[in-house]
Write a protein that binds this DNA or RNA. Structure first.
Length: 272
DNA sequence: CAACCGACCTGGCGGC
DNA sequence: TGCCGCCAGGTCGGTT
């Protein structure tokens, strides 16, 4: 479900409600996520402490606590975080409930259980965050960097964009969309792009992510922000899930192929 | 070693 | 109506 714009949307919706609040109770109803939830660590480092900031790194949400620890949450494919002001009925697949000092709860739901919830001790470096590439909306995401890093690479440019060691936060939807907007074919070997083409790729990635954030993310099925509200970027999708639909630029049908085991959409006429 | 591929899960949908 | 196969926004570890 969530790529960078969706995680950022959740972050922005929850931040004003969480910062300054203490986590009083932690209820873990299911520990079998992608990696087992370590309940002891959660109680030790998170329970009883106050949230000082809500940050994001790629697709990870990072709750900064006043003792220097962090609560790291990844939503996988189907994860949701929801703020409940009152004692609403628990929805299915609610694996974690964090009770706040104002009586509200933050609930983590994840039917497929591909997500991750982990407490990181103060000053501990978290393995999951090691080796991540630059943020696409930061000054580190440059054509120089990508041109050098992918020089000589024969892997498809789309695979490179979706590799979190290259750049974080770009998933299947936005990789497809960005490549359409800069006119580069997804299967094009990354090492064949010129410096100027990387500049256009970067410009497209940034623009599509920013527009998606402005629209509150893409709700294909079930994405909701922390307040339960959907996003609206799905109406702006140019190629993702648009097989056989006319290309916006040339009118020829959008093609779907499978690349790296992922559905890949593009216009063979407009993208070279 | 870069690059590919299956595995991890549940739910929803289309086809028969 | 119901069953079956396929597909899904993401990683990661093992294999080639």
């Amino acid at each position: 479900m969530p790529e960078l714009p969706e995680v950022e949307t959740i972050r922005r919706s929850l931040q004003p409600l969480l910062v300054g609040r203490a986590v009083k109770t932690i209820l873990v109803r299911e520990t079998r996520l992608r990696r087992p939830v370590n309940v002891r660590q959660l109680r030790k480092w998170i329970q009883g402490h106050t949230i000082t900031a809500l940050n994001r790194r790629g697709k990870y949400l990072l709750w900064q606590m006043d003792n220097g620890s962090r609560l790291l949450i990844h939503l996988g494919m189907s994860g949701r975080l929801g703020y409940c002001a009152g004692p609403e009925e628990l929805e299915p697949h609610t694996h974690l409930c964090l009770g706040l000092d104002n009586g509200a709860q933050v609930r983590y739901r994840d039917p497929r259980r591909f997500g991750c919830v982990q407490a990181v001790a103060p000053n501990e470096r978290c393995g999951l965050l090691q080796g991540l590439g630059p943020e696409p909306l930061s000054a580190d995401f440059t054509a120089d960097y990508l041109y050098d890093a992918l020089h000589g690479s024969r892997r498809p440019v789309k695979a490179a964009l979706m590799d979190s060691r290259m750049v974080v936060g770009v998933g299947n939807i936005y990789a497809n969309e960005a490549l359409f907007h800069c006119g580069i074919a997804p299967q094009r070997p990354a090492g064949t792009l010129s410096h100027e083409q990387w500049e256009r790729v970067i410009e497209s990635v940034i623009r599509v992510l920013q527009r998606a954030i402005r629209k509150g993310g893409t709700t294909l099925n079930d994405f909701r922000n922390g307040l339960g509200e959907p996003g609206f970027f799905q109406t702006d999708l140019s190629v993702y899930d648009q097989e056989d639909q006319p290309c916006q630029r040339c009118g020829r049908p959008i093609c779907r192929v499978v690349l790296q085991g992922r559905s890949t959409y593009y216009c063979p006429a407009c993208q070279k």
